[in-house]
Design a protein around this nucleic acid. Structure first.
Length: 429
RNA sequence: GCCGUUGUAGCUUAGUUGGUAGAGCACCCGGCUGUUAACCGGGCGGUCGUCGGUUCGAAUCCGACCAGCGGCGCCA
């Protein structure tokens, strides 16, 4: 048995191969049928000939339907008329299942494809996306392993909020209640006192009633924390990481990028350094960017789009006002009204994919900021404890992997970047 | 939470000032020895989201209900 891509090599011409897979397309005439066979690697044209197979076998093969499963043996030849340049003339075959009717065909609405995601993911487009997604997840981990980071795992069921209590999912827990995590960040911070540099890839859950093209209630969060690093160190790591992930996609997924008609030139241009713009500078330049923004306003979807229309590469926006971000960000000692943080905005209108920066590492400052945010430091006792025993400056970030895949592939909606999207109104399939 | 919008065949959809509900794909049957979204002929498939109202007559006009979708905010 071999894969379709293994069979489609010049040295295989004239050889007999055994292939298995699914019917991708089928066309038949009186004496000839063309079955396009699909497996995880590629598609290839099979030829069924009535003269060489006999009429009973020919009838059986030519009546196959889309996504029926089968195994064939036959001889490979190159043929320019075949869709991928090679063709296998069927000698023997075994049909595993002939389908009645595959519900997924051409001309489908977005909703129908979502309802049938378990079947739609067999499509060549979705398969291509899944292969790129696989590369992105691996490249993220590889990058940090290469930088001598350790991968760690945080709990998904937690007692405390990271980003604010209103967006927590409550789950029954032996007669009490627990929350699904919004971020593994606080737990990652606990690890830096032993491992110093750690990362994790895990889902995060946000009970926000978002209905947009770039929000999920369950999304894949790549997070990292490191001792001794400051905000600028962090941005240097992140831009190299993004460059590396894009390079890996370009190196491993050319066929997928071409199938999805991605503009490869845009990706080839993603090289360090990325521009850094302070929030306060951005406000001064707001008019140039065609925006009506004053100091203290958060950047909305229109603003992010307006900014990124001017850049071909990702851009860091840094030093946000303290009031715009969560309590754990460290204030600039020289200007406490601003924090030592950054967001990374993706080009081509995609906007924020990373949020990160320095964490508060001094005990008094953290307790004060928790109180100022209207929360009880006792609820965060273990997080506060970290600032009592050998605390050190440290930084970290969170990356939305689904958003990254969406941008790398220039997809129109984040639901196209994850196999089974969970949104405010979708839990199936 | 706020604003907007749509329900017609398994899927994608057309349907004019209210007058017998049409097509493409898929599927089934027949034809074709080189197809590329194959093609040609035939067939199957509809309580026009539901309920009520106006009318001689409603997919079309009105009302209520149900279900779905898009955008903003929130963030990654």
């Amino acid at each position: 048995m071999m894969s379709i891509s293994e069979a489609m090599k010049p040295e295989m011409i004239g050889k007999t191969v055994q292939l298995h897979g699914w019917v991708y397309r089928i066309r038949s005439s009186g004496k000839l049928s063309f079955i396009i066979l699909r497996d995880s690697t590629n598609i290839i044209q099979l030829l069924a000939s009535a003269d060489s197979l006999g009429s009973d076998a020919y009838r059986e093969l030519s009546s196959l339907t889309v996504e029926s499963s089968l195994e064939v043996t036959g001889t490979v030849r190159d043929d320019k008329r075949a869709v991928t340049g090679y063709e296998v003339a069927i000698k023997t075959y075994r049909i595993y299942q002939k389908n009645e009717m595959f519900p997924v065909s051409k001309d489908l609405g977005e909703e129908f494809k979502l309802d049938n995601r378990h079947l739609w993911l067999r499509s060549r487009e979705f398969t291509a996306m899944l292969k790129v997604r696989s590369t992105v997840f691996k490249a993220f981990a590889d990058f940090y392993y290469n930088e001598n980071y350790y991968q760690v795992q945080a709990p998904m069921m937690v007692a405390t909020a990271t980003e604010g209590g209103s967006t927590l999912f409550k789950v029954p827990f032996f007669g009490e209640e627990v929350n699904l995590t919004q971020s593994s960040q606080f737990y990652l911070e606990t690890f830096i006192f032993s491992l110093e540099r750690v990362f994790t890839i895990a889902p995060s859950f946000r009970a926000e009633k978002s209905r947009t093209w770039r929000h999920l209630t369950e999304y894949w969060h790549a997070e990292m924390e490191a001792a001794w690093l400051n905000n600028e160190d962090m941005m240097k790591i992140e831009e190299r990481m993004i460059e590396y992930i894009v390079e890996e996609v370009l190196r491993n997924n050319r066929p997928e990028l071409e199938l999805l008609k991605r503009d490869i030139g845009v990706l080839e241009n993603i090289k360090v350094p990325f521009e850094r713009i302070k929030y306060s500078e951005l406000i001064k330049k707001a008019q140039d960017f065609g925006m009506n923004l004053k100091y203290g306003d958060d950047l909305g979807a229109d603003e992010e789009r307006g900014i990124m229309n001017h850049f071909q590469k990702p851009v860091f926006i840094t030093d946000y006002p303290t009031s715009l971000k969560a309590f754990y960000h460290r204030q600039n000692p020289e200007n406490p009204s601003e924090i030592l943080c950054h967001d990374l905005l993706a080009p081509e209108g995609y906007g924020e994919i990373i949020g990160g920066g320095e964490r508060i590492w001094e005990y008094d400052e953290l307790v004060r900021r928790i109180k100022e945010s209207g929360m009880n430091p006792d609820d965060y006792y273990w997080y506060v404890d970290l600032r009592k025993y050998g605390s050190v400056p440290h930084s970290g970030f969170g990356l939305g992997l689904d958003r990254l895949v969406m941008w790398i592939l220039h997809l129109p909606d984040i639901k196209e970047a994850i196999p089974y999207p969970r949104t405010i109104r979708r839990t199936k399939p």
